[in-house]
Each structure stands twice: as C-alpha cells, then as structure tokens.
Amino acid sequence: MEAIGVWTAALATIGIVSFLYKDNVLYRICESVFIGTSAGYWFVTYFWDNLYRKFYLGIQDATDPNRFFLWFGVVLGVLMLTRLWGKIGWLSRWPLAFVVGATAGLYMMTFFVSNAMRQVGATIMPIFRGNLPAIIDNTVLAVGVFCGLVYFFFSKEHRGLFGRASRVGIWILMITFGASFGYTVMSRMSLMLGRFDFLFGTWLGILP
C-alpha cells in the first residue's frame, strides 16, 4: 500500500511540474483530482469539526445552560440554503448581512489598534538620541514613514514639496518591495530543492 502511495505521489509531483513546460493531459488529471479531493477533504473536515463538534456535541453539553443559543447559528445557516429556491432566495441575505456586519465591526477595531494606534506609538520616538549614525538612522526611519504616508494621500495633488515627499515615499516603498523580493527568492529556492530530494531520494533512491 505504501508503494502505491509513493508512486501516486511521484506521478502527481511530475504531473504538476510538467505544467512548467505547458498545459498537458497529466497536469489536467492531477489538477482535477486535486480539486475534487481537496474540496471533499475540507467539506468532510469542516463537517466533523464545525457542525458535529461545535454544534451537535455543543448542543448536548448539559453543563452549558446557554447552549441553545447555538441554534441561532443553525437558523442563519439554513436561511443561507434558501438560495437554492429562487422565490425565497432573498432570505439568504440575512446570514450574509450578519457575516459581513459582524466581520466589519470586529476587524475595524482590531486593525485600528494594530495598524493605526500601535504603529503611531512605535513611530513616536526620540530621534535625537545616541551618536550621529543612530540619529541619521532614526531620521531615515521617521522621514521614511512621513514620505510613505504622503504617498498615500488621495485627495491632494502630488505637486511641489508635497509631490517630492510623495516621490521619496514611492522610492522607499520600492526599496522595501525589492528587499522583500530578494529575501523570498533565497528562501523559495530551498523549497524546490526539497521536492527534488523527494523525487530522487525517496522515490527513485538515487540520492544517498
């Protein structure tokens, strides 16, 4: 059984890699199998994890007197299914509205704190502390944040001094993207080596 497994895995690996050459039958088979099995996999996983464990077991947990509140989730879920019947399909907007509204409210606060408040707090720092190189570094950091923010101004024309700051901003953004790109290039290479290790080592046994 293990042998069948390793062979299937190897054929799947080759099939996917063959995409680099061009779209072909083997790739399409791998793709279709992958799509089908993964859709089934997640359906089964969520069914057991969410519907069975969260709801079915949760509703039977006698130690929780408020467990009947879980039914409300099921009611919303069933409303979602009304999409399948054209006439009452509009009812499915209720659960959607709940999802969108709750999400918007929740993440509005979390991101406001993590992305706005905390970042401003981190940026406010004594620039003129330490020796000259440290002062220069801190100034670069402060000016960088300033120009970066200026770049994101939408309702003011990027002209004159403002335009120049915005220009510096986009330069700093590009330097950052370059650095991040370079960093990832190096790390991705090791992933590919890992796959070759499987093909030539585990499967073919050529590698020691």
């Binding site: 918007a104 706005a116 981190a122 960088g144 970066g148 700093i172 650095a179």
Partner: peptide, 26 residues
C-alpha cells in the same frame, strides 16, 4: 530602516483603509 519605515506607512494606510471600508459597510 527604509524597510521598516515603508512597512509602517503601509500598515497605517491599511489600518485607515480597513476602518473606512468597515464604516462604509456598517
């Protein structure tokens, strides 16, 4: 330095964008 600066600026912008979008939705 430049990387951290840009990431902070982007993060703040995203934070405001998220709040504005969430507000408009709500």
């Amino acid at each position: 330095y430049p990387n951290l600066a840009a990431k902070r600026a982007i993060a703040m912008g995203i934070g405001l964008g998220i709040v504005a979008t969430a507000l408009k939705v709500i």
